[in-house]
Each structure stands twice: as structure tokens, then as C-alpha cells.
């Protein structure tokens, strides 16, 4: 029943306060280890040193999709159980999702320049990442369009769930569209099966990135709760200063 206990924001705040330093330290250790391992990893015989972009690119791409999953779970929490922290979690996660997607797109295009000779290719994966980025931005715009947080939360929850249903369909249709337009192009399909010397740093980086997300997400949730408290205190103060209006 820990999830129910956490419905009390004060309890959540003390727990977050206690967990955050540990999580931050663990994240730092993992990221430093991962980056060191990545720097020591051998160059690829075909791609040279540019293969090291992978150690940032792949974890961001994984997380960009993972974050939408987290938001969908939170959306369920908002709509079904009306858990008071669920909409805080969903709101705090959206900018991180957008940031990871953006990072994956940028590192991908930087990687694409030396490998394919172009920054952008209408490849299926790139295109579906771009659409995911658009949807994150739309969701953030929806959050920002409405003043009342609980109203915004329910609208965003519905859009998040619709997006969760639609994202696989979009992915499938973009794959289909791309194979129709340019079969067997620059990208080697199948890809090389990863060697151990690449796999271990990649896994360390992936865990490090996930922990970084958890840490930042907790911190952002804490900030959001405090921001809402400040807002309601300000509203209270404003209504007390004008007797008769309240």
C-alpha cells in the first residue's frame, strides 16, 4: 500500500528528499563509468570513432519511448484512480521525454552526417522519432494552454492514452511508407550484432540514463508540488487582501 501512502504529498516530499541524494550519486557513478568505458571502447572497423555517438544516442532513443510509457501509466492513475500524484508525475515527465527525443534526433543527425553524408534522411526510424517529438511538444503545449492544473491534467491524460494507442500505428505506417519509397538505401538493415566491447558500455550507459531520468523526474515532481503550493498560497493571499471578492 506504499502507493496509497504516497498520495499524501508531504509524505512523498520527505521520501523524495531522502532518496534524491542517493539516486543522484548512483547516477553520477554510472554515467562516469559508462562514459569512461565508452571512451575506451575500440573504434569500429567501418565507422571509426563516430560509433561512440551510439553510447549517447541509443539510451536517449530508448528513454524517449520509455517516458511516454511512464506518462501513460500516470494517465491511468489520473483517470482511473484519481491519484493526486499521477498528474504531477505525468506533467513532470513530458519535458524530459521531449528532451530525450531531441537528444536522440540531434545525435542521430550528427552521426548521420559522416556515415550517410547527410544530416537528415527520411528514414523510417528518424521520421517516427520526429513525430514522437512533435507529439511531446503538442502535449507540453496542451499542459501550458490551461491554467487550472487538474483540468489540464485530465485533458492531457486522455491525449497521452490516445497517443499511446496511436504511436505503434504511426511507427508501423511510417515503416511501410519508407520501404515503399526507398527500398534498401543507406542504412544497413539488420545491423551488426553488437560485440561485447560495445555492449557492456552501452548497457551501463542505458542504466545510467534511466537512473538519471528517475532522479530528475523525482526532483521535477517535487518542484511541481512546491510550485502548486506556492500558487495556492498566492491565490489565498490575493483573496484575503480583497475582502468581499472572495
Amino acid at each position: 500500500m506504499t502507493l496509497l501512502n504516497l498520495a499524501n504529498p508531504t509524505r512523498f516530499l520527505t521520501l523524495a528528499q531522502r532518496l534524491l541524494p542517493w539516486l543522484a550519486a548512483l547516477t553520477a557513478i554510472l554515467l562516469v563509468t559508462g562514459l569512461t568505458l565508452a571512451a575506451m571502447a575500440p573504434d569500429d572497423y567501418q565507422q571509426g570513432a563516430t560509433v561512440k555517438i551510439m553510447f549517447v544516442h541509443v539510451p536517449s532513443a530508448w528513454l524517449s519511448m520509455f517516458v511516454w510509457g511512464v506518462m501513460s501509466l500516470s494517465a491511468f492513475g489520473t483517470l482511473v484512480w484519481r491519484h493526486p500524484l499521477a498528474d504531477v508525475a505525468a506533467k513532470a515527465a513530458a519535458p524530459f521525454g521531449a528532451a530525450f527525443t531531441f537528444l536522440a534526433l540531434v545525435t542521430g543527425s550528427l552521426w548521420g552526417r559522416p556515415m550517410w553524408g547527410t544530416y537528415w534522411e527520411w528514414d523510417a526510424r528518424l521520421t517516427s522519432m520526429l513525430i514522437l517529438f512533435l507529439m511531446y511538444l503538442g502535449l507540453i503545449a496542451l499542459w501550458r494552454a490551461v491554467e487550472d492544473p487538474s483540468r489540464a491534467a485530465r485533458a492531457c491524460a486522455i491525449f497521452t492514452l490516445v497517443g499511446a494507442i496511436n504511436l505503434p500505428i504511426i511507427k508501423f505506417s511510417v515503416d511501410w511508407w519508407n520501404t515503399l519509397h526507398q527500398p534498401a538505401s543507406v542504412i544497413r538493415s539488420g545491423g551488426p550484432t553488437l560485440d561485447k566491447s560495445f555492449l557492456i558500455p552501452l548497457l551501463v550507459m542505458a542504466i545510467g540514463f534511466s537512473l538519471m531520468f528517475v532522479t530528475l523526474h523525482l526532483a521535477a515532481m517535487r518542484n511541481e508540488i512546491l510550485r502548486r503550493r506556492i500558487r495556492s498560497l498566492q491565490l489565498l493571499q490575493a483573496s484575503q487582501q480583497q475582502p468581499g471578492v472572495a
Partner: peptide, 8 residues
Amino acid sequence: LVLPLSIP
């Protein structure tokens, strides 16, 4: 909001 959903 709607345009990305209508891509497929």
C-alpha cells in the same frame, strides 16, 4: 494535436 495522429 490532431495532425500527428492523422499521419497514418
